[in-house]
Write a protein that binds this DNA or RNA. Structure first.
Length: 745
DNA sequence: AGTACATGTCATTGC
DNA sequence: CTGCAATGACATGTA
């Protein structure tokens, strides 16, 4: 009986949802009947739980400019990217219906949307290929859809340009969407193209304190059924996804993305009942792990108790928000599915919800932008009748630029916008601008086993190298790996052995390398840390590796261990060519060779990568547990210091370059703003001249009329008063009257 | 030979 | 106090 009641209730809920989406006003007070999980789903995740990787905000696409502190997210990013690619095969992005519905019912106050270009760091993540596949997934209007989306995403700027009177810089402060319902579609496009979760209104998506999210999704009552119906019609005609969604809701049998939309809305208790209808849906076939479905079916009985419903009905940007949750990869994976699969695992779902929170970057920058916008909203024409005042305004604007116009506020500033997506590229490609070439270099070097590259190439994978996410993750992971974890991974050991086997292959010395070695020998660098030598050293210390096994690719000093000279100069950013000159780069090699030689001489049993990358505790343990001489300890510390500083220097240089590029963007934005202000100034001056001209004409007209009146009274030759003011007229009239009186007398 | 660029290293500073 | 990241300055190698 209890089950029947619940089934009945949830069926009613479904009907209510269907009716709501069809435009019928349904206000049945679903709140008390909604399971907790649904309530969470409706209200959105707790934004307070959202984590934002602030240090990723300025990462840049090519990865070269990746912020060094993004290292700990790299593996997550990589995994997530790969996961996204897998999912992109039959991308079923849900949120469109909800988003549009939400927009239909959004509050009358305008969306404080930023510039379409001002994607949030997270939103920006959906650029490039990811944006593509997201667009293809979410935007059913494929093909032209993408372009259209882009086009519409620029609508804000276009609109802004058409409204110069607003005082906002069309380039820097695009106008906000108006409340005109006719703009709704554009708004939607803006919203969708921007996907700016940091927008205040977007917080409503995830903030439980804001009801619009739930209202939008469930009860279109507030705005009225007409609008919703109209919009639903539009959606049906314009958006196949919506159409499909509605059809799917109405049980039309269309098996496409829409079911994906609906599934989360379906009470879990009915999922197994409906699974027959949906079972060929890609949601289940591709996105939802079968076992999750099973679990889900099993757990339908206590679905109400589960607050694990995946909330990722929202928008794809949530997935970007997921970037803020590096530790929740699994949850992320499920959340992308937008399936209730994660309901089987409440913890997982909760974790997902954690990640679904809106980024916390809403505030300072936005407020500043708002403030600045308000300042600039002061029309330069306000002081039109006063040239000086107007020009002062313009000058003040210019001055304000210097102070308040920060790149964050600058909506045109690509610096801020483009960085987020860089992480992905950086992460995904494991190589950035220069590191792509580096990776190529290294692979070439590895393949040819003749590279004379050294640490530079190593640092393309070096742990802390800012661009090298995987290497970075390697650093963190390797350093943080507990011995237990390390020992527990046989695969890792196998990998390590494979790596060493590969190294053996790489050790196959080419003739050139032999020449190189001969040169080194000539310099006294005999032997060095050849790969085989290093391997021997590494495996000799088996206990050490048992305790501190590094679960990574060991590429940090791979060339180093190949006894090849360190990388030199531009060799890092250029493919290695069998240039004979490259074999003469021994000076720097000697620098490293010095340490290597000394290390070999002192019989230091650790690889440099370990020396450099071990956490300080383990490093100290290493130094204390091993019977090392002072000389050995000093050398090890030197190696560690130099290695770390080398990485730090690389990071520092990348940051510097990053700042430089950001400043360039800022300069370009300021230049655009300046041109706009000058244009405004010219227009204002024109209008001022026009007003002056009109005023002069009016003055002339008034004067002429007064003169005519005066002539009328005094005749053509009377009076020398050409301009008669009221003040002057009074005595005139008085005089005239007195004169007449005198005449009568 | 001079120059620009990349990279490593050292010294210093601040957290 | 120690460790470390960040960074300026310098040295060096390469194109």
């Amino acid at each position: 009986m209890l089950h029947l009641k619940k089934y009945f209730t949830e069926g009613l809920i479904q009907i209510a949802i269907l009716l709501s989406l069809c435009g019928v006003i349904v206000d049945v007070g679903l709140g008390p009947y909604l399971p907790l999980s649904w309530e969470d789903m409706i209200l959105g995740p707790t934004s307070a739980l959202t984590q934002t990787q602030f240090h990723n905000l300025r990462n840049i696409e090519d990865g070269h400019r990746l912020h060094p502190k993004s290292v700990d997210l790299d593996t997550f990013f990589t995994a997530r990217r790969l996961l996204g690619w897998v999912h992109s095969a039959d991308r079923l992005q849900v949120p469109r219906a909800e988003l549009e519905t939400w927009l239909v019912q959004r509050e009358p106050d305008p969306l404080p949307l930023g510039h379409p270009d001002q994607l949030s760091p997270l939103g920006r993540g959906l650029t490039g290929e990811e944006r593509d596949h997201d667009g293809s997934a979410v935007e059913p209007r494929t093909g032209a859809g993408a372009g259209q989306e882009e086009e519409l995403s620029d609508a804000g700027a276009t609109r802004a340009e058409l409204e110069p009177q607003t005082g906002r810089d069309p380039e820097l402060w695009p106008t906000l969407p108006s409340d005109d319902p006719s703009d709704l579609e554009i708004h939607w496009q803006d919203v969708f193209s921007i996907m700016q979760p940091e927008d205040k209104d977007f917080d409503m998506w995830t903030s439980p304190d804001h009801t619009p999210c739930s209202r939008a999704r469930w009860t279109p009552v507030d705005v009225g059924s007409e609008a919703l119906l109209h919009h639903c019609t539009d959606l049906e005609t314009e958006a196949p996804l919506q159409h499909g969604a509605l059809n799917g809701l109405l049980g039309s049998g269309r098996q496409s993305e829409p079911e994906h939309v609906l599934l989360p809305l379906t009470p879990s208790a009915q999922l197994d009942d409906q699974s027959a209808a949906f079972h060929d849906s890609s949601v289940f076939t591709c996105h939802s792990p079968p076992h999750h479905m099973d679990l889900l079916a099993e757990e339908t009985g206590h679905a109400d108790d589960s607050d694990a419903f995946n909330m990722n009905l929202l928008v794809p940007d949530l997935a970007d928000n997921m970037e803020d949750c590096p530790s929740h990869l699994d949850a992320n994976a499920h959340s992308w599915d937008s399936t209730p699969s994660s309901s089987a695992n409440s913890q997982e779902g909760n974790v997902t919800q954690d990640c679904l929170g809106s980024p916390s970057r809403t505030t300072a920058d936005d407020k500043e932008a708002d403030i600045e916008g308000e300042d600039d909203l002061q029309s330069p024409l306000s002081g039109l009748l006063d040239d000086i005042a107007m020009l002062d305004d313009v000058r003040l604007l210019d001055l304000a630029l210097d102070d308040a116009f920060s790149p964050e506020n600058c909506l045109d500033c690509d610096m801020v916008q483009t960085e987020p997506k860089t992480d992905k590229h950086c992460v995904s490609g494991d190589a950035g601008r220069e590191d792509q070439s580096q990776a190529g270099v290294q692979r070439e070097g590895e393949d040819e086993a003749e590279t004379d590259s050294g640490l530079s190439l190593d640092f393309s994978h070096s742990p802390a190298s800012p661009c090298d996410s995987e290497a970075s993750s390697y650093s963190s992971s390797s350093s943080s790996l507990s011995p237990v974890e390390s020992l527990s991974s046989k695969d890792s050991d196998d990998d390590a052995e494979e790596a060493f086997a590969d190294s053996d292959m790489e050790v196959a010395v080419s003739i050139k390398q032999e020449e190189e070695e001969e040169e080194e020998e000539a310099l006294g660098a005999v032997g060095g840390w050849k790969t085989d030598t290093v391997k021997k050293v590494k495996y000799e210390d088996h206990t050490f590796f048992e305790g501190f096994r590094i679960d990574h690719d060991h590429t940090y000093n791979q060339p180093w261990s190949q006894a090849s000279p360190p990388p030199l100069g531009k060799m890092q950013s250029q493919h290695i060519r069998p240039n004979p000159s490259s074999y003469r780069r021994l000076t720097k090699a000697s620098a490293w060779g010095r340490d290597e030689r000394r290390a070999q001489t002192l019989k230091i049993p650790f690889s440099s990568e370990l020396i450099v990358n071990l956490p300080v505790e383990e490093f100290n343990d290493l130094l204390t547990n091993r019977q090392l001489s002072e000389e050995q300890v000093a050398l090890i510390k030197d190696i560690r210091r130099r290695g770390k500083n080398k990485i730090a220097a690389q990071n520092c240089r990348k940051r510097k370059l990053d700042v430089l590029l950001g400043l360039e963007d800022e300069v370009s934005a300021l230049t655009r703003r300046r041109s706009w202000l000058l244009r405004e100034k010219r227009e204002a001056l024109k209008k001022l001249q026009e007003v002056k001209r009109q005023l002069g004409a009016l003055y002339q007209e008034v004067s002429s009329r007064l003169r005519d009146e005066h002539l009328l009274h005094f005749g053509p030759g009377g009076g020398g008063v050409s301009v008669a003011t009221n003040r002057r007229q009074a005595p005139l009239y008085r005089r005239r009257k007195t004169g007449k009186k005198q005449e009568k007398e």
